[in-house]
Simulated assay, not measured.
Amino acid sequence: MKNVAKATKYRTIQSLNNKSEKELFHDYAINKDLAIRNELVNRHLYIAEILSKKFVNKGIDYEDIYQVASVGLIYAIERFDLSKGFEFSSFATPTIIGEIKKHFRDKGWSIRVPRRIQELSKKINGAKTTLHQKLQRTPMIRDIAEYLDCTEEEVMEAMEASQVYTPKSLDLTYDNDGEDKDVQLMDLIGDTDKSFDLLENRDFLEKAMEKLNEVEKKVLKDRFFASKTQMQIAEEMNVSQMTVSRMEKKIIEKFRKELNKSL
């Protein structure tokens, strides 16, 4: 029986491997077969890998980011609608990035802190609880240092750094040196320039588009800026939809290479 089951599983995998991406998405939309979803995930894990690398050295381990990105990939597969006419990679990218940024908001440190400080900060929190029960009083810096076998300076450094883990409320007020009105923290913080991301993305697009010929530029603009379908573009160019599809994949591959260079 085991041999029969293995043979059946092997035939199923081979069958899925021979199917096109569109066929897999079509079949999955109908029966939600996990084997099909797994095949789709395996085929598109490179997207999660590429996007995860953009967030390395920002306070969270790459392995954690990649795991979150992989979950985002699964969400994208679940939500993808083949009938809309979009390429899956174009649909999946914002979904995955959204999951990664959400993870950073929920789990990340506000400022990049060395790993040794993060780990010591966690130990200090546990030491405080243990020592409070043992000493029946609030533990001093020297108590914690002795318990953790480290210096008092290291304990103080970790405790100060841990303040960036939990951001302070913007409603927090400070005395304004004798003035009638106290100053709120929100008044001391500058606004984020939302144009930074736009400029970065525009710069990447301009450099990537230099690698395209005039026909490819037209397809790119029509598909992703004018929201035209492949069929509409094919009719305008007097070519087949398959030709437009191949050109689109070629454009995405060129963009992917440029993205890898920028990481």
Rank of each mutant, 00 (worst) to 15 (best):
E200K: 05
R223N: 03
L45G: 05
M209A: 13
I50M: 06
E153V: 07
D171H: 10
P114E: 09
I252K: 03
T12V: 11
D149W: 04
A226V: 14
K168N: 08
L45R: 06
D143M: 11
K257F: 05
K32A: 08
I60V: 05
K250R: 12
K19L: 13
A161G: 01
N125Y: 15
T229W: 13
T192G: 00
T151R: 11
G178W: 08
R137T: 08
I50S: 13
I50K: 14
G190N: 08
S227M: 15
D203H: 13
A127E: 00
I96K: 07
Y147C: 03
A226N: 14
K101F: 08
K249V: 00
N38V: 07
K228F: 03
T173W: 04
M140V: 00
I144T: 02
D222F: 15
G72W: 10
K53S: 05
S90T: 13
R202M: 13
I47Q: 13
M159Y: 08
L135G: 11
S262L: 14
A29S: 10
K101M: 07
Y165P: 01
I252S: 10
C150V: 13
L16C: 08
T166P: 01
I30K: 07
D222W: 15
F224E: 01
I50R: 13
Q230K: 12
M156T: 11
K53P: 02
I251D: 02
D197C: 04
D171V: 09
K84R: 05
Q133N: 15
L220G: 03
L172Q: 15
K181W: 08
L212Q: 01
Q230V: 06
V215K: 08
M159L: 13
K134P: 06
Y147V: 01
K107E: 09
K54F: 10
I124P: 07
I36G: 00
K217I: 06
I251W: 02
D33G: 09
L40C: 05
Q136V: 12
V56E: 12
V4G: 02
L82C: 07
N260L: 04
G178Y: 07
L135D: 13
T243H: 06
S162D: 10
Q241V: 14
L135S: 07
N176R: 01
Q230D: 03
F55T: 06
T95M: 12
M1N: 09
I251H: 00
D81T: 03
G108M: 03
R137F: 07
K134F: 11
R116K: 11
I144P: 00
A92F: 02
K2L: 10
F80S: 04
D191L: 15
S15N: 01
V41P: 00
I144M: 02
I36P: 05
T95K: 10
M186C: 09
Y174N: 08
E78R: 02
I189S: 00
F255L: 10
E21Q: 03
L148C: 02
S52M: 01
D191W: 08
T229H: 06
S227F: 15
D171K: 07
M140T: 15
I124H: 03
E23F: 09
K254P: 01
D33W: 04
S121D: 02
R202Y: 14
N125A: 13
D81L: 11
T129S: 12
K218H: 08
T138F: 14
P167T: 06
K261E: 08
Y66I: 02
L205Q: 12
V41F: 03
F86R: 03
